[in-house]
């Protein structure tokens, strides 16, 4: 059981990692932030029953993302004041093409690919 008192600490310490996962799913930092916040907000309501918070939030992240993909007509919109997309290091053409190809995958397939990157994530997801 997760103590609600640690929720704030969890948001502070784990957001960055979860945001990166969200970014791999959405390919866009603003949408990633939106996805992260929505997932953390949903997790708040289940917090008292959650055994492993990070694994749980990661699950919510993926289900929320796939549900957004399905519905398209999204209820939550990125805030105007979200941070700008940062510049990233130049990548080779092949790598860039691969990144873009992942971005064209349907949501569930993309989630599978992203989660496969880190075996730990997968283990957490299947617990």
């Amino acid at each position: 059981m997760a103590d609600r008192g640690i929720y704030q600490d969890f948001v502070v310490t784990r957001s960055d990692r979860l945001l990166r996962t969200a970014y791999l799913l959405t390919h866009d930092w603003a949408s990633a932030e939106d996805l992260l916040q929505e997932s953390l907000a949903k997790a708040w309501f289940a917090w008292a029953r959650v055994e492993e918070p990070e694994a749980y939030v990661r699950k919510v992240l993926v289900t929320t993302y796939t549900s957004w993909w399905r519905r398209r007509w999204r209820r939550e919109l990125p805030s105007d004041d979200l941070p700008d997309t940062p510049a990233s290091d130049p990548v080779s053409d092949d790598r860039d093409a691969l990144w873009r190809a992942v971005g064209r995958l349907p949501a569930r397939q993309r989630a599978v690919v992203v989660l496969r990157v880190d075996e730990t994530m997968v283990k957490e997801l299947h617990r």
Binding site: Q8, V11, S15, D16, L19, R20, T21, Y23, L24, W29, E33, L36, Q37, E38, L40, A41, W44, F45, E76, S79, D81, L82, P83, D84, T85, P86, S88, D89, V91, D94, R95, L98, W99, V102, V113, V114, R116, V117
Partner: peptide, 29 residues
């Protein structure tokens, strides 16, 4: 392996900080 590298490369890049995240999550709640 290439695919893994590409995703890690992007995932390990600088993520934008959002000092208002707490407030925004509370608003969503």
């Amino acid at each position: 392996h290439d695919l893994r590298d590409v995703l890690r490369e992007h995932g390990d890049g600088p993520s934008p900080a959002n000092p208002a995240r707490h407030e925004e999550i509370a608003a969503r709640i």
